[in-house]
């Protein structure tokens, strides 16, 4: 069972909880390959996706996860909601709770927004990305993909390459993977490496070659163009040349290296098309796994409470 009604981040959940989510997701994945992709498990439950930032895969993934499990799902895009009239997050949360919602999936540009909402309402809250803080479901699907491909997480060498500073994906991955026993190296342009990142127990590498050396998994982060207006690196071309993952840079990694990317991909910037289409990349599978992981979370949070006993 999960100890909280919410999933706000991987920093504060235990290894056992992560393992439970991953093993539940394994059972959920089977449903995605059926002819009839629907189970009645969450019949009568309702959830809202409340997104204050743009998203295709995360929002769609949550919505489909809910639908595949028979929950009623509603989307609120803030650009067409009362938010444009100045409604606060607290009031929006209370309003949708008053309509009887059981779970809110929230993405917000402010770090900590889901935490505030979780305290404000009794419905469950899932953090679908808050500012530069956490994106726990992305890290869970990354770990699910790693575990599926490698059979384990413990002891693996994982390199995270790119904009660590702005990346909530990186932070959630670091907290989650560390708990599961992986060793992590990070690499990116120096201005995009937070000064105290090594406090999280990761090794900072000064070159991509060093970071990739002997790696089992490479998690390539998206260059967030929307956050690059302060000139953290000279140009995308230069970034692509020095940090972009191509065939050549992969040579130093383990032969069976797994390359993952949270998407959306800037082809030819942080990763070449050649690598994306190669057999070592699992970017599309990550998306499939994302639905399974979110189904698992909805199940565990919405059925809530203590873990039950078997049938009979």
């Amino acid at each position: 069972m999960l100890s909280s009604k919410d999933l706000l981040g991987l920093k504060d959940i235990s290894k056992e909880e992560i393992e439970l989510i991953l093993s539940t997701a394994e059972a959920m994945k089977e449903i995605l390959f059926r002819d009839i992709k629907k189970v009645p498990t969450l019949r009568g439950k309702s959830m809202v996706c409340l997104f204050y930032e743009p998203s295709t895969r995360t929002r769609t993934s949550f919505e489909l996860a809910g639908k595949y499990m028979s929950a009623d799902t509603v989307n609120i895009s803030t650009s067409t909601s009362s938010v444009v009239k100045g409604e606060t997050l607290r009031d929006t949360g209370r309003t949708i709770e008053a309509m009887g919602i059981d779970l809110v999936v929230i993405r917000h540009s402010c770090s900590g927004a889901p935490h505030m909402l979780a305290e404000e309402i009794s419905a469950s809250v899932i953090n679908a990305g808050d500012g530069m803080h956490e994106h726990p479901t992305q890290a869970l699907l990354d770990m699910f993909t790693i575990k599926e491909k490698k059979g384990r997480i413990e002891g693996l060498e994982v390199a995270i390459i790119g904009d660590i500073l702005h990346s909530r994906v990186a932070r959630s991955n670091i907290w989650g993977l560390k708990k599961m026993g992986a060793n992590i190296r990070v690499c990116g342009p120096m201005p995009l490496i937070p000064p105290n990142i090594s406090d999280l127990g990761v090794r900072v590498c000064s070159s991509v070659e060093e970071a990739v050396e002997g790696a089992d998994v490479i998690n390539v982060l998206r260059i967030q163009r929307e956050r690059q207006d302060k000139g953290f690196f000279p140009s995308l071309r230069e970034y692509a040349k020095i940090y972009g993952i191509d065939r050549e840079k992969l040579k130093g990694a383990k032969e069976d290296v797994l390359v993952i990317h949270p998407g959306p991909v800037n082809r030819g910037v942080e990763i070449t098309s050649e690598v994306i289409e190669s057999s070592c990349a699992a970017i599309e599978e990550q998306v499939t796994n994302g639905v399974a992981v979110r189904m698992a979370l909805l199940y565990l949070l919405l059925q809530g409470g203590a873990k039950g006993e078997g049938a009979n």
Binding site: A27, T41, Q303, G304, G305, A306, K307, G308
Partner: peptide
């Protein structure tokens, strides 16, 4: 597991396995 009629009553999430 996902088809049980006592999920709500038990207010629990019993372990699910793959079919």
């Amino acid at each position: 597991t996902m088809y049980r009629d006592d999920l709500e009553a038990k207010n629990c999430s019993p372990e699910v396995n793959k079919s």
